[in-house]
Design a protein around this nucleic acid. Structure first.
Lengths: 125, 125
DNA sequence: TAAGGTACTTACTTATGAGTAAGGAAGAAG
DNA sequence: CTTCTTCCTTACTCATAAGTAAGTACCTTA
């Protein structure tokens, strides 16, 4: 609203793609929703909460999200080691955007009735 | 707001993932932004508007978006053939959701200053 | 000295999406 | 009867993301 220089179809698409890159990754959303609401979890708690994920994947996704500035990593120098993960303010700020997406997805069935395309439950055909 | 049964972290993540699947694909956003605003374009016009895309990719993405109910395909039985593409109402409805994403992405720099993490312009290290 | 718990790392394999290149149908125009 | 246009298909290769399995470091407790 304030200082959008020029926004061609391509540049707009690029910006959205860049934003979506933060969410790409098989487990990032799952992790995100585990940490939403200011929750703080240990590595092992995340493992337990997401049984299907491997340690490698969990770390890989957490590291990327940390680099992206979405999650914060808090190391307690102890034995055995203890590391906590939570969302940054910016990570928390994803909520409304994801809500908007969900609302859009929810509107699919309503519109598709009049649209004569893309049945909610595709027939066997 | 109305009838959300239960929304665990996993189910919420699943729903967002499903919504994001509609946007996944190297060229879907580019196509989307070319068609936003009620524009109607021929296949060949899309090709020209997006020089980097191959015909196969363009068709593949369009077909998926058509199946998803995002774009509408209008065939004029002529020779040479003429096919037009435009967005469905639901496709147009993506605008606010993408806006929310863009706003979130734009907020990154503002917050990361106080966050001591993820510098907007990473140094050489 | 041996076992155990937490938080990782490394090497390897597999599946998927994207890219390239070429071909085809269906008539109209020359 | 050959060529042109438009829209679309098919076969193949390649790069990247994801998954699997095993190993490491650290110090404590028995």
């Amino acid at each position: 609203m304030s200082k959008e220089e020029e926004l061609t179809p391509s540049s707009a698409a690029d910006r959205v793609e860049e934003a979506l890159k933060f969410l790409e990754g098989r487990w990032k959303l799952v992790i995100l929703f585990r940490l939403f609401g200011g929750r703080v979890l240990h590595f092992s708690e995340l493992e337990k909460a997401i049984p299907a994920i491997s340690q490698k994947m969990l770390i890989q996704q957490l590291r990327q999200m940390e680099e992206d500035g979405i999650v914060r990593r808090i190391v307690h120098h102890q034995v055995p080691p203890k590391v906590e993960y939570c969302l940054t303010d910016w990570g928390q700020a994803l909520c409304p955007a994801l809500d908007a997406l969900l609302q859009w997805a929810a509107a699919r069935e309503l519109i598709s009735e009049t649209d004569a395309k893309a049945p909610p439950v595709p027939s066997i055909s």
